[in-house]
Write a protein that binds this DNA or RNA. Sequence first.
DNA 1: GAAATATTTGTTTGCGTACACAATTTTTGT
DNA 2: ACAAAAATTGTGTACGCAAACAAATATTTC
Lengths: 365, 365
Amino acid sequence: MDKSRRTTIQDIAKFVNVSIGTVDRVIHNRGNVSPDKKKKILEAIKILNFNPNFLASTLALGKQRHICSLLPHPDSTNSFWQLPKKGVKQTAAEYKDFGITYTAFDYDLKEESSFVEKSLAVLDANPDGVILAPLFRKESELFIKKLEEKQIPYIFIDSFIPDQKDLSYIGPDLKGGGYVAAKLMSSILSPNDDILIVNLIKSVENSNLNVIEKGFREFFNDSNINSKREIKSITIPSLEERDINVELTKYYLKNPETKGVFVTNSKASLIAKYHVLHELSVKMIGFDLLEDNIKEMKDGNIDYLISQRPFFQGSMAVKALFHYFIYKKIPSKLQLVPLDIIIKETVDYYMDFKEPTVGNFLSKN
Amino acid sequence: MDKSRRTTIQDIAKFVNVSIGTVDRVIHNRGNVSPDKKKKILEAIKILNFNPNFLASTLALGKQRHICSLLPHPDSTNSFWQLPKKGVKQTAAEYKDFGITYTAFDYDLKEESSFVEKSLAVLDANPDGVILAPLFRKESELFIKKLEEKQIPYIFIDSFIPDQKDLSYIGPDLKGGGYVAAKLMSSILSPNDDILIVNLIKSVENSNLNVIEKGFREFFNDSNINSKREIKSITIPSLEERDINVELTKYYLKNPETKGVFVTNSKASLIAKYHVLHELSVKMIGFDLLEDNIKEMKDGNIDYLISQRPFFQGSMAVKALFHYFIYKKIPSKLQLVPLDIIIKETVDYYMDFKEPTVGNFLSKN
DNA sequence: GAAATATTTGTTTGCGTACACAATTTTTGT
DNA sequence: ACAAAAATTGTGTACGCAAACAAATATTTC
């Protein structure tokens, strides 16, 4: 069965006895085609099972689309924000041949003004689509208003602002993340063990962590174990070892019975280090597969890490925009990424795992 | 900054003052180019940062590659084997425009002869690459020998035969899967609770389950809790409710203290149903996100499911072959997929999660 | 019923590359 | 020095599609 190659526009034209121009007009709904020929052509498309060749189509069209990302600047080489950014960058590069170009804009998580500045830069770049982590609520709202005025589609990743005209939110179910953390915590503690929730944030803008904490507490409300467990939370607005030491020591002196700590962002390793230093045996749960976190997990100082596939978030955002550009396909508004539960024994699988990418055509001489 | 479009072969030709033919010869290392021109062209490629346009390249080349899969026939619409197959099929369809065609061959898991028959059919189809789940060891070895004679590259998914010339193995670390299951089991049982390992298999050929069991036991050997826990295993060579009932009842009557059950394949739901029917409260761990398993997990009859990303295995196998075809890129020989630990609270995220695909160009009238 | 206009259809060029073939230049042998 | 052979370089066509342009009908207008 030497199945002859795919049917082309030519085939259809010949089949219906018209020129390829007419077929093209029908395919693109460009009008100016007599009803009967249109009908015949549509039939032929069905019969011969015609799909336009995506390569030839893109090549002929030659349209360039520019994607910009506006994400927090990674505060170190081992920062959470490296990951989604890498996902965006790498995937955009994959689509280079398909006319996708990409520029990254990073804002300073500590400076609202930086966000404003960079968001203006994004607008200046005149993008066809924007990928945004809207950590500053008010400033983000202003920004997306401008995007909407210019009819530029945008996608939220990592966190989102409700009730907006974003194309999609691609990121974790924050509340669910807290809930899952609580479930895991409860599975490794005794019913009456006290728990501490640590919010390690610099700016107070970001209310996501509250949502996470809410989810965490909700689990313990749901599970009507009539335990006498105490669940307290503290906020440490600094990532400096000194500050953390002071605050934690203050807390532990008052609450020596704390048996589990849940850190609501990716900085669990900082708390784990404190525990090691002070020889405290406390169960710990945190987020994200950062080098420091992994090290502490392997050393037994963190019990569970929950990952929200940050690389994938970036990767999917680009893909969604691409599909929107090319096929006018509207992605589902809410795309919650899986919350991966990771333990010492499974972490290496996640780190070694590399999905091959489409593009990356390099002349190999 | 109206960044001029990408540099093309034309640009290079003009830059060096030669014809595109000569540039082409250099790019493809096809010889017959004077050394100095070659040098200049290579320099220009560097300077102008030239990458061949993948679209145009593929289009001009117009080469077709045929991929065949040889996987177990899904024994129901809700079978594990649906998943990798779907991954292969969908991804192959994505690459249709890139010249990839695909044919699926399914063999009967109960019949070695079926494997032989289908493997011959694969050879008849004259594929350019094969994706294979080598569940019958001996028959698989014969098959891949023939593939090697014909120089047809092949990739193992789901399980593999060691020391072969396969392009890659894409699948779980089976032993690691057992080990992880054990870790989880130990976290939900008391130190002295007895455990049962259930091997639900029809054919004895498949030694993978032994590897999984080995990993499971290894964990308890490693963790030198001097418990008096008993870990026994039984093999039930049937999926019929009757047979399972008989065997399990026989076992439980003799071992009433069993508190945890680990099922080494995707059929944990069958055991869970038995427990419900007989009102047994037993902790359970199994593999794979099948509908039945998910239901039992949501009902509280299965505590953990471990997923090995079956869809992705298929998807990645196609991508790896594609890259091998196009870029001659040899994938890493061992690509262990992450072992996702899934609980009632996270299962929905996995089910809802849909990665957008590249192709699927459908005229949307 | 012819001119003017509107509608429908056909043709051509270009996207960037691969490759066959033609044309040119260089080298070799005598 | 000159033909013959070898090495090098240039040109044209095709891949399948999109879109501009040109041509051919059909319809309207007076």
